[in-house]
């Protein structure tokens, strides 16, 4: 439902309804404090305020395909400073989830890493650093995996030397089945189903 100006209110509605904390965007008064306080602002294609403006302008592709929504490191600075008390960080996370759900992968390596991290926790109850890195790197294909391994080889060696990374695989925790039950429940809740 585009008008002459190219605005598309239906995307804003879509965000308000479907994105976690999405309706908080309504409070934004475009002051730019979030953008200027973000430690990752130099790396963002659109800082948070611009993301909010793009949502209001109906720029679905630009928003859901944006690198920025995947960059948030949860430092809370924007949340603390926002003069309208918008949980900017939650909105950015909400948008990232929504974008993935809708098949957008603006920072594919971050998405793969996140997915593999979850898999590790589900499988073992803990993270095996070596296995996690390896799987995340090779998720994009064999040659990309080799390239990544070579790129981070010196970091890996240092981690091993400092005993931050083990070469032998990590074992499962005790009671892994109980943890899995909890994680299953959490996933159900995330999908909006009721849990007994």
């Amino acid at each position: 439902m585009e008008n002459k100006m190219g605005y598309n209110a239906s995307f804003a509605e879509e965000v308000f309804r479907n994105v976690d904390s999405g309706d908080e965007i309504k409070m934004c008064m475009n002051c730019g404090v979030c953008a200027a306080s973000c430690p990752l602002r130099e790396h963002m294609d659109y800082p948070p305020r611009q993301i909010f403006s793009l949502i209001r302008a109906g720029k679905r592709e630009e928003v859901l395909g944006s690198q920025s929504i995947m960059l948030c490191t949860s430092c809370y600075t924007c949340v603390v400073k926002c003069p309208r008390s918008i949980p900017v960080m939650d909105v950015m996370h909400g948008l990232a989830h929504y974008a993935l759900k809708k098949g957008y992968t603006p920072r594919i390596e971050a998405a793969r890493f996140g997915k593999e991290f979850w898999n590790q926790v589900y499988r073992r109850g803990r993270v095996d650093e070596r296995d996690l890195a390896q799987r995340a790197y090779f998720a994009g294909g064999f040659w990309e995996g080799v390239k990544k391994i070579l790129e981070f080889a010196d970091v890996g060696i240092k981690l091993v030397l400092h005993r931050r990374m083990k070469l032998i695989p990590e074992k499962k925790i005790k009671g892994i089945s109980t943890l899995r039950k909890m994680l299953d429940k959490a996933e159900m809740l995330d999908k909006g189903r009721s849990v007994q």
Binding site: N30, C31, G32, V33, A35, A36, S37, P47, R49, Q50, K81, P83
Partner: peptide, 25 residues
């Protein structure tokens, strides 16, 4: 632009203002 931070250069006492120019982005 709402100014999001002020920091001081100790040597000169000058002030560095940071914000986002919301007209130009």
């Amino acid at each position: 632009s709402k100014i999001a931070n002020i920091s001081e250069d100790e040597a000169t006492g000058n002030l560095l203002l940071e914000g986002e120019n919301t007209r130009t982005g």
